[in-house]
């Protein structure tokens, strides 16, 4: 029986002239927890956005198991962006319900599922509160509940523990592992290698828009001939990382000229020295 859930074939993504991703191919199988590991600007978020159908590939294809495109199969996806994306004037439950309704799920159904996961995350007492005063951890947990409420087949998590305290990060990681044990497929982006090792069954190292390695932690060690994953990562990403924010288009034309007009030049190296 074929376990493939999503197939990424020779995908490249360009922003202007900047190559954010270069010829990426991977297969996401049912029940896997895949760690996307890479430095800032490696292309993890771009890849996640492609998987979520927010971006369209410049080259290549992304196809769901049933042959449909990612855009068409978005009701199978649960997405937690790095920013969490909660509305501060809505309560936690209203935020969850809003996304569930747009997924076409009935309120009773999403409420039952939310209650189930909220108990695991210790969020039940906060579901009726406006998210304005929520801590980063509570926001992250709410975003997770929101992504789970419509029972997705594939969960895309962009740095779900970034900025969280130890306890909150631990709770989130525990839930991810539980979900994995329940058969959920999860793509988990992080730049913390130990975290990926702790949570994921498969690790993909992304560097400068390319997949440098893809396998279980053991396979990565074998591939690089190193004894720790950290050393393996350093070996795989030994070339200098490119500057961050490859998606941010540089200002063009008039904007660039205007900005340059009011931007003083930096002093040349050693410019203060008297000749």
């Amino acid at each position: 029986m074929d376990d493939t859930l999503l197939q990424v074939q020779s995908v490249s993504k360009l922003f202007g002239e900047v190559q954010a991703l270069n010829n990426i191919s991977l297969t996401i199988n049912k029940g896997e927890i895949i760690g996307l590991v890479g430095s800032n600007g490696a292309g993890k978020t771009t890849l996640l956005r492609l998987l979520a159908g927010v971006y369209r590939p410049t080259k290549g294809t992304l196809q769901m198991a049933d042959g449909t495109t990612v855009e068409a199969g978005r009701h199978h996806l649960g997405v937690v962006p790095e920013s969490t994306g909660l509305y501060s004037r809505l309560t936690a439950w209203e935020n969850i319900r809003y996304h569930s309704r747009l997924h076409g799920v009935k309120d009773e159904e999403s409420w039952a599922r939310t209650l189930h996961y909220a108990t695991l995350l210790d969020m039940t007492p906060h579901l009726g509160r406006h998210t304005k005063g929520f801590s980063r951890g509570m926001r992250q947990k709410t975003a997770l509940l929101r992504a789970l409420a419509h029972h997705p087949s594939l969960l895309l998590l962009d740095e779900p523990t970034a900025g969280l305290d130890v306890t909150s990060a631990r709770t989130v990681k525990k839930l991810v592992k539980t979900l994995g044990e329940d058969g959920k497929t999860i793509v988990y982006s992080t730049h913390q290698l130990p975290e990926a090792e702790q949570v994921c069954s498969r690790i993909i190292i992304v560097h400068n828009g390319e997949i440098r390695a893809d396998g279980t932690p053991q396979e990565l060690l074998q591939l690089t001939g190193q004894t720790t994953l950290e050393e393996a990562y350093v070996t795989l990403s030994s070339d200098k990382a490119r500057s961050v924010d490859v998606e941010e288009q540089p200002a063009k034309g008039w904007s660039r000229m205007w900005r340059g007009f009011f931007t003083p030049t930096t002093p040349a190296a050693g410019g203060d020295e008297d000749e």
Binding site: V80, S83, L102, G104
Partner: peptide, 13 residues
């Protein structure tokens, strides 16, 4: 600016 748009664009609408 608030980062809510990205989550919205990942929905089936």
């Amino acid at each position: 600016e608030r980062g809510t748009l990205e989550a919205l664009l990942g929905l089936p609408c």
